[in-house]
Computed example of a mutant assay.
Amino acid sequence: MTRMLRRLAIRSAVIGAIAAGAVVAVPQTAIAEAPCQDGTARVFLNNATNLCQSGSATYTARPAITKVCSTGGTKVVIDTDGPRRVNRRHVELDPGGHCARFEVEGQESATVQVTAA
């Protein structure tokens, strides 16, 4: 409920500012809500950025992955590594908006592979 009210407040503020002719800086949360194309995965990093990824990529501890979401028509496989058991994970996401969160502390690397479903 709080999240929905926050989104509504941000959207109302942006609409009001645009109507007044002001330049609007779009917050990162609004950017994160923009969907990735089918055939990609949304990868969220611990430095408050996110990107739409296709193919295969390996991320190091800086920046580490915090969350990965699949899109339509893609299978996403994530393998993380680190010294603790919680850092060593193998996750497979089915198509259609499924997400997984990952422990950042101790994460040494993560490989994200996006393939057609």
Rank of each mutant, 00 (worst) to 15 (best):
Thr2Gly: 15
Met4Arg: 15
Arg6Met: 04
Arg7Ile: 06
Arg7Pro: 05
Arg7Asp: 08
Ile10Gly: 00
Arg11Trp: 02
Ser12Pro: 02
Ser12Thr: 01
Ala13Thr: 05
Ala13Glu: 05
Val14His: 10
Ile15Ser: 07
Ile15Trp: 07
Gly16Phe: 01
Gly16Thr: 00
Ile18Pro: 01
Ile18Arg: 01
Ile18Tyr: 00
Ala19Gly: 02
Ala20Gly: 01
Ala20Ile: 01
Ala20Leu: 00
Gly21Thr: 01
Val23Cys: 02
Val23Trp: 01
Val24Pro: 09
Val24Arg: 12
Val24Glu: 11
Gln28Tyr: 07
Thr29Tyr: 05
Thr29Gln: 13
Thr29Lys: 08
Ala30Tyr: 09
Ala30Gln: 08
Ile31Ser: 15
Glu33Gln: 10
Glu33Val: 04
Pro35His: 05
Gln37Met: 08
Asp38Lys: 13
Asp38Leu: 08
Gly39Arg: 03
Gly39Gln: 02
Thr40Leu: 06
Ala41Val: 02
Ala41His: 04
Arg42Asp: 12
Val43Tyr: 08
Phe44Trp: 15
Leu45Asn: 11
Leu45Tyr: 07
Leu45Ile: 07
Leu45Asp: 07
Leu45Met: 14
Asn46Arg: 02
Asn46Thr: 00
Asn47Arg: 06
Ala48Ser: 07
Thr49Ile: 01
Cys52Asp: 01
Cys52Gln: 02
Gln53Thr: 06
Ser54Asn: 10
Ser54Asp: 10
Ser54Trp: 08
Gly55His: 11
Tyr59Phe: 06
Tyr59Ile: 00
Ala61Ile: 00
Arg62Asp: 14
Arg62Trp: 05
Pro63Thr: 04
Ile65Cys: 00
Thr66Cys: 01
Lys67Asn: 04
Lys67Arg: 13
Lys67Thr: 02
Cys69Val: 00
Ser70Pro: 12
Ser70Gly: 08
Thr71Asn: 03
Thr71Ile: 04
Gly73Glu: 12
Thr74Gln: 06
Thr74His: 05
Lys75Leu: 13
Lys75Gly: 14
Lys75His: 09
Val76Pro: 05
Val76Phe: 06
Val77Thr: 13
Ile78Arg: 13
Ile78Tyr: 10
Ile78Asp: 12
Ile78Ala: 08
Ile78Pro: 15
Thr80Arg: 09
Thr80Pro: 11
Asp81Val: 06
Gly82Cys: 11
Pro83Met: 07
Asn87Ala: 03
His90Trp: 11
His90Gln: 07
Val91Ile: 15
Glu92Met: 08
Glu92Thr: 04
Glu92Asn: 12
Leu93Thr: 04
Asp94Met: 15
Asp94Phe: 11
Pro95Met: 06
Pro95Glu: 09
Gly96Trp: 11
Gly97Leu: 14
His98Ser: 12
His98Gln: 13
Cys99Phe: 02
Cys99Leu: 03
Ala100His: 13
Arg101Lys: 12
Arg101Cys: 09
Val104Ser: 09
Glu105Lys: 14
Glu105Met: 14
Gly106Met: 09
Gln107Phe: 11
Ser109Glu: 10
Ala110Pro: 07
Ala110Phe: 02
Val112Leu: 09
Val112Ser: 10
Val112His: 11
Gln113Glu: 10
Thr115Lys: 15
Thr115Ala: 14
Thr115Cys: 14
Thr115Gly: 13
Ala116Val: 03
Ala116Asn: 03
Ala117Phe: 04
